[in-house]
Amino acid sequence: MASNIDRMDSLPSGVGICTTIPDILYVPELIFGGLVWILVACTYVEEANPLGWVMCVSVFCFVMTFIWLVVFACGSHHNSRGWATADFIYHFIAAVFYLSASVELATVTLYMSAATSEKGVRDYKLEISAVVFSFTATLLYFVHTILSAIRWKSF
C-alpha cells in the first residue's frame, strides 16, 4: 500500500487506475451513483416532489465519472498538472453536488408519509435505500477530492 501513496505525484493510465489511490474509487463511485439513479427513478414522483435535482446530480456524476474513467484508462491525460487540477476540481464539484442532493433526498424521504398501501411502503423503502447510497456516494466523492488534492499539491 505504501507504494501506491509514493506514486501520488503522477496520474495513472490503463490498468493503473485500478491499483492506485485515489483512482481506485472510480468504480465504487459509479456503482453507488448508479444505485441512487436507479432507486430514485423507481419511486413514484408527485408534481411537488423535488427529486429532479437528485436525478440530475446522479445522472451527471455517473456520466462524468464514466467519461473521466475512460480518459484515464486510455491515457489521454498525458500526466500533466492541468489534468491533476481538473481531477481535483471535478471531484470537489461532484462532492458538493452530491451533498446537496443527499440532503434534499433525505428531507423528502423524512417528510414522505409511508402510506398504508403496499406501494407507498415500497416507495418509502426505496427512498431510504437511495438516501443511504447517496450519502455513501457523497463520502466517496469527498474522499476522492481529498486524495486528488494531495496528488495535485505533490505535482
Rank of each mutant, 00 (worst) to 15 (best):
V96T: 12
R151K: 07
Y141K: 00
A115C: 15
D23H: 15
V40F: 00
E46R: 08
Y98I: 08
Y44G: 06
R81D: 06
S76E: 08
W83P: 05
T85G: 13
L35M: 10
E47C: 06
T107V: 14
S3M: 13
C74W: 12
K119H: 12
I21F: 14
W68C: 10
L39A: 07
T138L: 09
V121M: 12
A41G: 04
T85Q: 07
R122I: 01
F133I: 03
M55G: 01
W53V: 06
R7W: 08
S3E: 15
F62C: 11
H91M: 00
I5K: 12
F72E: 03
W53I: 02
W53L: 05
I89P: 06
F32N: 06
L99T: 15
V143N: 07
F135P: 10
S102F: 02
E104M: 15
L110D: 11
F62Q: 07
G33S: 00
W83F: 12
L126C: 09
T19C: 04
N4S: 15
S102W: 10
T138P: 03
W152S: 04
A95C: 10
W83T: 00
R122V: 00
F88H: 00
M112D: 13
M112L: 13
L147F: 14
V63K: 11
L35W: 03
A48L: 14
F97K: 13
E29G: 08
T85M: 14
V70K: 09
V70H: 10
P12W: 01
T19K: 14
G14S: 06
V40L: 02
E46K: 14
